[in-house]
């Protein structure tokens, strides 16, 4: 188990190096000279060249990459030319906001889908099961952009219940959170439902009931644990999708997180900011998958860490 974990970590490091490489190459391939952007349209050639030297862009790509990587190894994520400060500083502020939003969305969506899926699975074939299925099907087919607009239209414009833009209290988080978690909730509801239906057909459920354990206890304590296993493994993967949605949702609701930042940074050709933002996102994603695997071994005694 320990060996496997180490191997897995080694692979993770390799993947993350790959991510920095891709990000680096992509940014260099792009047109648009960041030095020109920094210097502004009125700048003379000398001024631009000056910027180029200061930004390290005059050096070879290899040197640029190695310099960047060396920085990362020392905890320096680079310098953002559009924000005129260190990338680490920009990212850390934004990361907190993204964390708040994704965790909030993930949390409410998880709770909601597990509840709905469990009830639907137990009441297989009932009206509530139908509602859950409908929600699952529609939720998986909806554009996140469109959903955001519709939410704004209903709760922001028509009912005026919720603020539509920016940071603030909890009520600012509700719409973007729902928007972000919607698709995930649909997938999980569906899995939870079918998982519960399958588990309830198992012999061991009847066997538990034959020991005199009440129906509700059998379902909610004994069967639920079995049904939750696939849900938990899926959580890690699904968190990745949720994270991807951040780019769109943060832009729609003007939420100053890492997703919105990435869009701005790409438009500004802020090389190091984009590179590090992608890296951080990947780290999060990879960590979530790892965490899900570890969690899985904890809840399912049959699986040891592979």
């Amino acid at each position: 188990m320990r060996n496997n974990l180490l191997k897995r970590l080694g692979l993770t490091v390799f993947v993350l190096i790959g991510v920095t490489l891709i990000a680096f190459v992509l940014m260099r391939l792009g047109g648009g000279d960041p030095a020109v952007m920094m210097a502004g349209g009125m700048a003379t050639k000398e001024e631009v060249q000056d910027y180029r030297v200061r930004m390290g862009l005059d050096q070879s790509y290899l040197v640029q990459y190695l310099t960047y990587m060396n920085g990362i190894l020392h905890g320096d994520l680079g310098y953002s030319w559009s924000y005129h400060t260190s990338v680490g500083e920009v990212l850390s502020v934004r990361l907190v906001q993204t964390f708040n939003l994704t965790l909030f969305g993930f949390f409410i969506a998880s709770i909601f889908s597990m509840l709905l899926g469990t009830i639907a699975g137990i009441r297989h074939g009932s009206p509530i099961d139908f509602v859950a299925l409908l929600f699952a099907i529609i939720g998986q087919s909806m554009s996140i952009v469109w959903l955001g607009f519709v939410l704004i239209l209903i709760f922001g414009v028509q009912l005026k219940w919720l603020p539509t833009q920016g940071l603030g209290g909890l009520q600012h988080m509700i719409m973007p959170g729902i928007c972000l978690g919607f698709g995930y909730a649909a997938v999980q509801t569906r899995m939870m439902r079918s998982g519960m239906v399958d588990v309830l057909k198992e012999d061991y459920v009847v066997a538990t009931r034959a020991r005199g354990i009440s129906k509700s206890r059998t379902y909610l304590v004994y069967a639920l644990r079995n049904a939750l296993l696939p849900i938990i493994t899926n959580m890690g993967n699904q968190f990745g999708h949720l994270l991807a949605g951040v780019v769109v949702v943060e832009t729609i609701f003007n939420w100053p997180g890492i997703g919105q930042l990435l869009v701005q940074a790409i438009n500004m050709r802020d090389y190091q900011l984009v590179q590090s933002a992608l890296l951080i996102t990947s780290i999060l994603l990879v960590l979530c998958n790892l965490l899900a695997d570890i969690l899985y071994t904890v809840v399912d005694p049959r699986i040891s860490f592979q």
Partner: peptide
């Protein structure tokens, strides 16, 4: 009554025990 006064042994021991307990 179930389990207390009437006990039942099931046909397939591979499926009648809950794998995660």
């Amino acid at each position: 009554m179930r389990g207390g006064q009437i006990g039942m042994v099931f046909a397939n021991p591979l499926t009648s025990l809950n794998p995660v307990f």
